[in-house]
Design a protein around this nucleic acid. Structure first.
Lengths: 209, 209
DNA sequence: GTCTATAAGGTGATAGAC
DNA sequence: GTCTATCACCTTATAGAC
């Protein structure tokens, strides 16, 4: 159960499915392409996972788990004062997103397409963000941060972190006129820029660093 | 050329195509569905627009034009000092995005799927953002704003504006546990929250309002 | 478990009547 | 211009040999 055979067929299929689904979405993905990617026959996909729909569900859940629990864990793992932890979180989460840059767009697209089905799946994950909310409220109560709705702060942080990665081709096209290197250079500096931008907005001067 | 007959077939097709493509993406859209939506026959789609691909291109360009020039115009139309105009811009742009909430996700999905083809299309639009960049630099030079890379500020504003709309079902599912009303209430307050968040981050105290 | 062959239904596109 | 009928191809899924 714990050991992983690398040329295990089930595993190969899942890896191939992740690649193909995340690149093309459910509607654009082809079972043949997944089979080719896995180096096996199309019939084997159905032997192991019965239908395209079942395979998609597995990939979708994996994608969600890469986004959400990582977010919570990246936050919880930090130590130091609130702003130190926030800065650490932003850095960790940008790293995670940049390693899997297509996952947010994939999830957004699928979940917009069948919101009722997938929104329920998300709700059932029952992600516990109370730790983050309480932490924000504590920093406000301690007078370190100006009052702000914790949900707003959370969503601002996530927006500033994920959106520029999701919108990479648009930013490259519109702002950098197609220059991919320009975008890349730009993103290198974002980690600190995002953290500074947020902290400048919310920190109260009481205990200047 | 200027007059518009409302039950003009060409127009009906385009409106139907916009709805179907933006909802389902290129790969998920069906010509039959577009025909049904337009209340006409499938063959007529090909009579007027030859292929699915041609129809998609038209819809995609319309979508881009709804996002980008609106952004520039919303910015240019404001008056008053920099922060007044910024606040006005954020309000206008959120209004535009909320009226067409599926367009950003549609564009992001398609452009991620065939980045080379569509990134070039974006670059060819040759959107002129120099006005915005210069305006930001002027505010920094005047000492009203702390120094920040104008591109960073632009992308931060756009991220905070668009992302929460694009990620509506995710936010509803994960943060509001499926409660759609919770999301809606939340978004009502975002306009001022976003503007305050940004302005708190960048404004220098020199000329307190 | 893995393959080939094929079924069953869908999809974009066209031909041709009106 | 608009329709029905149909083609040619593609896609998921299964049957059955090995």
């Amino acid at each position: 159960m714990i050991e992983k055979q690398d040329s295990n067929t089930e595993e190969k299929i899942i890896l191939a499915a992740e690649k193909v689904f995340i690149e093309n979405g459910m509607a654009g993905a082809r079972m043949q392409q997944i089979a080719d990617e896995a180096g096996i026959n199309k019939a084997l996909l159905h032997y192991y996972y019965r239908s395209k729909e079942k395979l998609f569900e597995i990939v979708f859940k994996t994608a969600i788990k890469m986004l959400v629990p990582n977010l919570v864990n990246a936050y919880k793992s930090g130590d130091g004062d609130f702003f130190t932890r926030l800065r650490k979180f932003i850095d960790s989460y940008i790293t995670i997103i940049e390693k899997n840059p297509h996952i947010p767009a994939f999830v957004i697209h699928e979940v917009n397409h069948r919101p009722d089905q997938l929104t329920n799946m998300l709700a059932e994950l029952n992600v516990d963000i109370s730790f983050i909310i309480n932490d924000i409220n504590a920093a406000i109560d301690a007078g370190d941060m100006r009052p702000i709705n914790p949900y707003d702060l959370m969503i601002n942080v996530i927006s500033l972190t994920i959106f520029p990665v999701v919108a990479r081709p648009m930013i490259t096209g519109i702002i950098f006129k197609g220059d991919k290197k320009g975008y890349k250079e730009f993103m290198k500096h974002r980690r600190n820029v995002v953290a500074d931008f947020i902290i400048n907005s919310i920190r109260l001067e009481k205990s200047q660093q």
